[in-house]
Structure formats: structure tokens, C-alpha cells
Amino acid sequence: MPPPARPAAPMNWETFTQGLWKENPVFVMLLGLCPAMAVTNTAMNALAMGVATTFVLVCSGLLVSLLRNIIPKQVRIASYIIIIATFVTITDYAIQAISLDLYNALGAFIQLIVVNCVILGRAEAYASKHPVFNSLVNALGMGVGFTFALLCLGGVREILGSGTFFGVMLFGERFQPWSVFVLPPGGFFVLAFWLVLFSTVRRARERREKEAAHAA
């Protein structure tokens, strides 16, 4: 039996929150952008996509972590992809059974979860090196972070682009929808604005910390 590569990493709150903010897959690491923009024209689609991705992320993280000492190093990427593809197929059929409307709205992007870099990235960088429970918690954190990011995009695009939020009218009849936001260019613009906002916040905080250190 091969010895474990490293002592088990301590399991703490950080394992979960890592994916939420500090390493948020969309806003910080810029991974998984294709689904993040393609299906976020309404908040509902964004939520569905986020949940589906989280499911695949958690299940594949679990399996990869369980098999991490069995899979030979040379074929690991191929093995991960096959594992992910299996769970995506399950998700695909499940969504088709639950809600056909949703299935048609998301289209090929459910199957394209396979090539979402977030999932393969987590399998390679975390699940293949950590015990099962840690991987599970980490994958869940990443999934929630991804869903949060998708909702940020989808919410803004739906509110500006069609004046609704989860299908509920917000501004009444007289609102003139700013429809470019539900069209492809809107996706790019909204994500760019979020990135600028976050980098402004980060900069302000860094400056404050520096000043505090200077004053002390």
C-alpha cells in the first residue's frame, strides 16, 4: 500500500470558505467563464446552472478523492474527465426529467459542464491530494462560490435587461428594458463591471491596511 503523500491537511472553516471569496472561481480565478456568461441571461437559469455544476463538482470530487491512490499518475487527467463526464450525463438526464423548459433554456450548456475548467481544476489541484471529507467540503465551497458568482451576473442582467428578477416584475409596466444586457455583449460588460468593482474594493482595503501599518 502506498504511503500517503503528505499528512492530512487540517480541516477547518478555511477549506470551505476558500472557494467563496478568496479563490472565487469566476471573479478571482477567471475559470468557467463560458457557462458563467452563456446561461446567465436570467437569474433562474443562473441558479439552475450553479446547482447542476455544484452537484457535478461535489460528486466528482468525492470519487476522485476516493480513487486518488488507485489512479495511475500518467492517466489521471483522462480518468478525471471520464468521471466528470459520467456525472454530467446523470445531471443531463435528471434535468431533462425534472423540467423540460429549463433543459431547453440551458441547451447544450448542461453537457458542456464537462469542460468547465473549475471542475477539472478542483479534481487536479485539491481532490487528488486530500482525504474524502476535506475534498467534499472544499468542492461544496467552490460550488457555492460559483453559484453566487452566476447569480451576481444573472441577477444584474435580468434586472437591467428585462426588468424582472426570478420572473417577478420590478419596475412596473412603464419600464423600458435595456435589452442589450440579455444579449451576448451584456454578459461581457456585466462581468467586466463586477471585476472592476472587486478590484477597487481590494485596492481600497490594501491601502487602508498599509496606512494602519504605517501609523502603528
Binding site: L30, F188, F189, L191, A192, F193, L195, V196, S199, T200, R203
Partner: peptide, 11 residues
Amino acid sequence: DVSMGAALSLM
């Protein structure tokens, strides 16, 4: 400064 990098490319 703040819009350097990814944000600019996305715009």
C-alpha cells in the same frame, strides 16, 4: 489602474 487586465479584455 483598476480596469487593467481581465476587466479591460472583457470590455
